[in-house]
Amino acid sequence: MDDIAQRCIDIIAKSKGLDPQSISLESSFDSLAIDSLDKINISFEVEEAFNIEIPDDALGSLKTVGDVVDGVRRLTSEPTA
């Protein structure tokens, strides 16, 4: 697992009070018992950690840990305007 994925997992684990070992890229937000407030918090922590801004319309489509990691990859590889 690369650095981006591991950092995302660590952020989610910390926010949820879970062991990072219990989270995979395939883990769904439902299976991690992530509710809408968790989602806001996790999105913020991810934005802070990677210095990115997740677009509003992307937030709704995040369903798994892998979705978060993919999103971070996209946002960190694109040159910012």
């Binding site: 926010s15 949820k16 018992a33 809408s36 407030l37 968790d38 918090n41």
Partner: peptide
């Protein structure tokens, strides 16, 4: 508070 509240409520 983690003993009583969900992580979502805690963050809010």
């Amino acid at each position: 508070a983690r003993e009583y509240l969900s992580s979502g409520t805690l963050s809010a």
